[in-house]
C-alpha cells in the first residue's frame, strides 16, 4: 500500500517536473526578449528541477544519497535566481532595451487588459513618469 503510494507520488512528481521544464523550454523559445525569457528560463525551470529532484529523493528513500539530493535542491533554489539576476543585470548594463507592453502592442493584437489601458496615457510621454492610478 505504502509502496503503491510512493510509486504514484514519484510518477506524479516526475510528470510535473517534466511539465514545468517543458513550459520553460517553450518560454525560452517563444518569449520576445531576454528579460521575459529569464522569467521562465530560471524560475519555471527551478520548479521543474525541484520536482524532479524531489522524485529522485523519494525513490532513493532514507539513505545517504537522498541527503545529496536535498543539497542539490537547495543549491538549485539558491543559485538559479542569482544567476538569472546576474544575467538580466548584465543585459541591462550592456544596454539591451526590454520589450514592454506598449512597444509589443504595436505589432501584435492582444486583448486589452485594464492595466494596460490606464497606463498608456502616462507612459507614452517620456517613459519614466509616475502613474497616478497605480501609486496613489
Amino acid at each position: 500500500m505504502i509502496e503503491a503510494a510512493r510509486f504514484w507520488a514519484i510518477v506524479v512528481l516526475v510528470v510535473a517536473g517534466l511539465f514545468f521544464t517543458f513550459v520553460s523550454a517553450v518560454g525560452v523559445i517563444r518569449l520576445p526578449d531576454i528579460y521575459a525569457r529569464a522569467h521562465t528560463a530560471s524560475q519555471t525551470d527551478t520548479l521543474g528541477a525541484g520536482l524532479a529532484l524531489a522524485a529522485v529523493a523519494l525513490a532513493l528513500g532514507w539513505q545517504q544519497a537522498s541527503v545529496y539530493t536535498v543539497l542539490l535542491l537547495f543549491f538549485v533554489f539558491i543559485t538559479n535566481p542569482t544567476a538569472a539576476h546576474a544575467i538580466a543585470r548584465s543585459a541591462a548594463e550592456t544596454g539591451i532595451e526590454p520589450v514592454t507592453a506598449d512597444s509589443a502592442a504595436d505589432g501584435d493584437t492582444r486583448e486589452p487588459s485594464t492595466a494596460s489601458t490606464d497606463r498608456n496615457s502616462s507612459d507614452d510621454d517620456g517613459g519614466s513618469d509616475v502613474d497616478g492610478g497605480e501609486t496613489a
Binding site: V23, G27, R30, L31, T100, E111
Partner: peptide, 18 residues
Amino acid sequence: NVAISFVILRPSMPIEPV
C-alpha cells in the same frame, strides 16, 4: 508558476512585459 504556465502555453501568449 501555474499562472505563468497557462499564459505561456496559450497560443495567443497574452504577456504584458513592464
